[in-house]
Amino acid sequence: MLSFIIRRLLLIIPMALLVITLTWVLVRIAPGNFYTGEKKLPAAIEENIKKKYGLDKPWYQQYGIMLWNTVRGDFGNSLKYERETVNELIWRSFPYSAIIGLLAYILALAIGLTAGIIASLKQNSGFDYGSMSLAMLGLSVPNFVLGPILVLIFSLWLYWLPPARWSLSGIILPVITLSAIYAAYIARLTRAGMLEVLRSDYIRTARAKGLDEKTVLLRHAVRGGLIPVVSFTGPALAGLLAGTVVVEKVFAIPGLGNIFIQAVLNRDEPLILGIVAFLSILIMVFNLLVDISYGFLDPRIRYE
């Protein structure tokens, strides 16, 4: 187990560097430069800019410098927000995204697990059909449509919640908007996983031993039925990132997603690389945690 974790942790480094390289190549092979605008720059000024950012060196030196900076975790200053370093920008904006994303995932888990488990226990009932149709609807409404419609209803018509403010009441709508699709996914996964487990031999054995229904469900069935939900956590995290980009834009939240889009549109290379590195490592570490947790949920899975 320990060697498995160490091996996977060591694998994260080259993979993060691969993602960074890919991003760097994409930004670099595109025609034009971050400093080319509407106006053509005089040659001398262009020369100076190139010198300042090390663009006059051969490409392999630039690549080497970039990799070394990435390994040290020092991406330098942003090109657009020149007074701030990339790291400062990331640490300032990440808490917003993390809070929204985490709350949304918790809400999605609460709704999805409850609905999924009840639906699987009352298969083919009205609740089953109702909740599963609702889940399908949740999968089909894009979050950038859902968000503004919620604002329209709850902020502009009913005056219940603010449309955009960083406060307890202000983050209710963004969290709901972001969580809808995950609640839907989790409900469907839980239902399917539970239905499969409830028909398996070890549940029959547990019942045959004379265990009461509550123990069978909570100690045996749920543990096995949750595996698909746990393996969804990895992709969900990647999806939450994309989701926060939208939600932050709709609700005007100064989070990481917002900054990333700005960085990409400005071709702010250090900021793009910094955010991509940060998020890649975050996702890979989460995937590792997910893989480790399988072992606890399903005793049949062992890592060597």
Binding site: M15, L26, G239, L279, S280
Partner: peptide
């Protein structure tokens, strides 16, 4: 497996914005 753990959406966003439009 390796490609799976890459956060694609980030790369697609970069790809589309650097190559979109006149580029």
């Amino acid at each position: 497996d390796i490609l799976y753990s890459i956060p694609y959406i980030l790369i697609v966003i970069v790809l589309l914005s650097v190559f979109g439009g006149s580029n």
